[in-house]
Nucleic acid binder design. Structure first.
Length: 152
DNA sequence: GCCAACGTTGGC
DNA sequence: GCCAACGTTGGC
């Protein structure tokens, strides 16, 4: 299985690259979008690499790298009434929502801002740059992953 | 199965 | 805080 590449968005006020560095490994729960879930369920494998992106903050952009260390499994927060991610329609017998575990790899020496991503012609097709894109998990081409790493 | 209304996301 | 874009819901 060829290694695949992803971009994960996170609001740094909720969970930042520094948080991931501190805990080293985190279960990526709370995804409540079918497209993003399907990526996890159907295409994500142990060893895949991901770029960590900070969204909804003063300086959105890519801040580091992580990798998948556990493939999709049920997101228990969907069954937890006290959780902000509780979904009464997710049946424990047939869980609707999934999560993966990600492990910290590196924090970039600098933030690669959204503005710079837009200026890089190698990234013209990147989903995250498309207007109105709201997916929290998007696939990346290897060339895009590499191009962004090279911008550091 | 259509589609209007509504809620959420996320950049600015 | 605004607003464009999108996903989801629910009435019909």
């Amino acid at each position: 299985m060829a290694k695949q590449y992803w971009l994960f968005k996170s609001e740094p006020s909720e969970f930042s690259i520094d948080d991931l560095k501190r805990v080293s490994c985190e279960s990526w729960g709370g995804v409540r979008n079918y497209q993003a879930r399907n990526f996890m369920r159907d295409q994500m494998h142990v060893g895949d690499m991901l770029l960590f992106y900070h969204s909804s903050c003063p300086k959105p952009g890519v801040v580091g790298v992580a990798k998948i260390v556990k493939e999709a499994y049920p997101d228990a927060s969907a069954f937890d009434k006290s959780s902000a991610y509780y979904d009464p329609k997710s049946d424990p017998e047939n869980p609707r929502w999934l999560m993966v575990d990600v492990e910290f790899v590196e924090k970039f020496d600098r933030l690669i801002e959204l503005k710079e991503l837009r200026e890089n012609s190698k990234l013209n097709d990147m989903l995250i740059l498309r207007k109105g894109n709201r997916l929290s998990i998007t696939p990346l081409k290897k060339s895009e992953f590499q191009a962004i790493k090279d911008m550091e």
